[in-house]
């Protein structure tokens, strides 16, 4: 590339796609080899060896999470993230993420309940990209797990007349300082506060979550933060099944990427996605 050539967002997306592909082979070797090792394929495993291999496994998955968040973030910012359109049950998505996080927390800190308050009035099925929705909510949850060292975590769901699903994630951590708050959606931002768990991410989860939400026409924002905890909120416009054309009901289609990147500033935060 010459210095006169304009830099477009398409190039980073292509580079990311290539990098994503090339990193997945070595990650396969790391994860399968460590699984084989733990299952005794190379001989008896001592407790110390098991802890060492566990570190290899956990950090392999950290690298994969970084790769996937970065890929999703870059594609969303470039308007090249192809959102799927299908109908899905929102409460099942919430139950799934709650169980995933609760399981992780239980393994590492049994004193941190993860509460889920489902909305009574939400339609049984919404239309949108359930995988992207799940990624957004999980990013908020991992952020709560990583940066609130202890205390409960609450997930609350709400449905508005404007066909907007809001999901808030509240933690009981020390809060985010006023000086850090304007920066938490910047990619790779690390404020004074350090993650409290060893499997924390790289500061990309909140950026990715906001970029995906904005691509859907929604948003992710910090609702409030105080010394007794922080609340992040995802507001996602998701039509009810009856509000979309019959052809979309129960079907899966892919929405072509937007022609131009969103005009919003680059998002992000100190969010891990182990």
């Amino acid at each position: 590339m010459t210095t006169d050539e304009p830099i477009s967002l398409e190039t980073p997306v292509r580079l990311m796609r290539k990098m994503s592909h090339d990193m997945r082979g070595p990650l396969s070797t790391l994860t399968i080899t460590s699984d084989l090792f733990m299952q005794g394929a190379y001989g008896e495993v001592t407790p110390k060896q098991a802890r060492a291999v566990d570190r290899i496994q956990r950090n392999s998955y950290r690298l994969l999470a970084l790769l996937e968040d970065l890929m999703a973030y870059v594609k969303a910012e470039a308007g090249q993230f192809a959102l799927m359109t299908e109908t899905f049950p929102p409460n099942e998505v919430l139950n799934g993420v709650q169980q995933e996080i609760a399981q992780y927390v239980a393994q590492h800190d049994s004193q941190r309940p993860v509460h889920l308050a489902l909305c009574e009035h939400i339609p049984p099925r919404l239309t949108g990209d359930p995988v992207a929705v799940r990624r957004i909510i999980l990013a908020l949850l991992w952020n709560a797990v990583a940066f609130a060292a202890s205390g409960d975590i609450w997930i609350e769901s709400c449905w508005t007349d404007a066909e907007r699903w809001t999901v808030s994630v509240r933690d009981s951590g020390p809060g985010i300082s006023p000086g850090d708050q304007p920066h938490i959606f910047e990619p790779f931002w690390r404020g004074d506060q350090r993650p409290q768990v060893p499997t924390s991410g790289f500061g990309l989860g909140l950026s990715m979550a906001r970029a995906l939400a904005r691509l859907m026409g929604g948003d992710v924002r910090l609702e409030q933060s105080s010394p007794s905890g922080s609340t992040f909120l995802a507001a996602l416009p998701l039509p009810t099944v009856s509000a979309v054309s019959p052809a979309a009901n129960g079907s899966t289609t892919s929405t072509p990427p937007a022609a131009s990147p969103p005009s919003t500033p680059p998002p992000t935060s100190p969010s891990p996605t182990p």
């Binding site: 592909h21 997945r24 990650l27 994860t31 399968i32 392999s60």
Partner: peptide, 29 residues
């Protein structure tokens, strides 16, 4: 097919005739 091009699953099976597509990194299980 076991590939790092993780968004090729549908084409791999429907168009190219693979019996299964596994995205990398694939777990041992």
């Amino acid at each position: 097919i076991v590939s790092g091009y993780v968004d090729m699953a549908n084409r791999a099976i429907a168009e190219w005739g693979a019996d299964l597509f596994l995205p990398k990194p694939v777990s041992l299980e």
